[in-house]
Amino acid sequence: MSNETKRDVFEDLVEELANAYIDLDGEGIGEDLTNEDKRAYLKDYDIALPDDLPVIPKAVGEWIKECKHRNVTLADTLCMEMRPENVRNWMAFKDGDIANDFDRAGYLRKQDLMATAWVLGVWRVEETGEIVKLEAEK
């Protein structure tokens, strides 16, 4: 599996279609898209990652990796008492807020993001934009 998203595959197809109908000089018709080309794009689209991957901090991704490696359940991964402090802080407070202003909606949204990343086994790192995929156990 590649790190291509569905949007990447779509943009490749649009470019290929544009080139098939108009050559670079804007004169005449370019080469036709073959049935083989079409099947290849559909296959690439089917295996591509979703565009809306969860975006989580690196520390949260490391916690998910550690829990998956130790065969910890999702419920225990989300459990407040088990989480490292940096993950607990990310989940419990508003972005940039270190006061006691607990944000329940933000907490639930972040819990959903963390759970989605855990279930999918793939996410985007907030700090770098890198896509991280958990490798299946062999």
Rank of each mutant, 00 (worst) to 15 (best):
K6Y: 09
D97W: 05
D8P: 06
V72I: 13
A136Q: 10
I98E: 11
D52Q: 07
V122C: 14
N86E: 04
Y41T: 01
E126H: 09
K65R: 09
R70A: 07
E137G: 02
D46K: 03
I131L: 03
E4Y: 13
R124E: 04
P54Q: 01
E137R: 10
G129K: 06
A136T: 11
D52H: 09
F102R: 09
P57M: 04
L42R: 12
A18T: 06
T128V: 06
G30V: 01
K138F: 02
Y21Q: 12
N35K: 10
T116F: 08
K38I: 14
L13P: 13
N89R: 09
G26N: 02
A59F: 11
T5L: 02
T34N: 10
A40T: 10
M82N: 12
W123G: 05
L42S: 10
M80V: 13
A18H: 04
L24H: 05
K68C: 00
E85V: 13
Y41P: 00
F102A: 13
M80Y: 04
V14G: 03
L24F: 14
Y45N: 02
E11F: 13
P54F: 03
F93Q: 15
D23H: 07
K58C: 10
V125Y: 03
E16S: 10
G129N: 11
R83E: 14
V9R: 05
F10T: 15
G30T: 02
D112Q: 04
M82S: 05
E15I: 05
E81R: 12
N100I: 12
I56P: 01
K133E: 06
I29Q: 14
P57V: 08
I56M: 11
E31A: 12
V55E: 15
A48Y: 12
E27G: 11
F93G: 02
V9Q: 07
P50T: 03
S2M: 01
L13K: 13
V60L: 07
K133Q: 15
D76G: 07
A105Y: 13
N19I: 00
L78C: 14
E130N: 05
L17E: 01
D76Y: 00
P54Y: 06
D76H: 04
L17W: 05
C79D: 03
G26T: 00
V119P: 02
K110I: 01
W118I: 07
Y21A: 09
L17F: 08
A99C: 02
V60F: 09
I56G: 13
T116Y: 10
A92F: 06
E16K: 15
D97Y: 01
R39N: 07
P84A: 08
F102Y: 13
A115M: 00
N35Q: 14
F10S: 06
A115G: 05
I98L: 15
R109N: 14
F10R: 01
E126P: 05
D37L: 02
N35G: 15
G28K: 05
V72C: 06
E4S: 15
L74Y: 00
Y107W: 14
H69S: 15
P57A: 02
L17Q: 05
N86K: 02
V9S: 08
M1Y: 11
E31W: 05
E81M: 12
D46L: 14
P57N: 07
R88T: 13
C79T: 08
D76I: 06
V119T: 08
G106Y: 03
R124Q: 05
G61D: 00
T128P: 01
K133A: 00
M82C: 12
K68P: 00
E85F: 08
E4N: 13
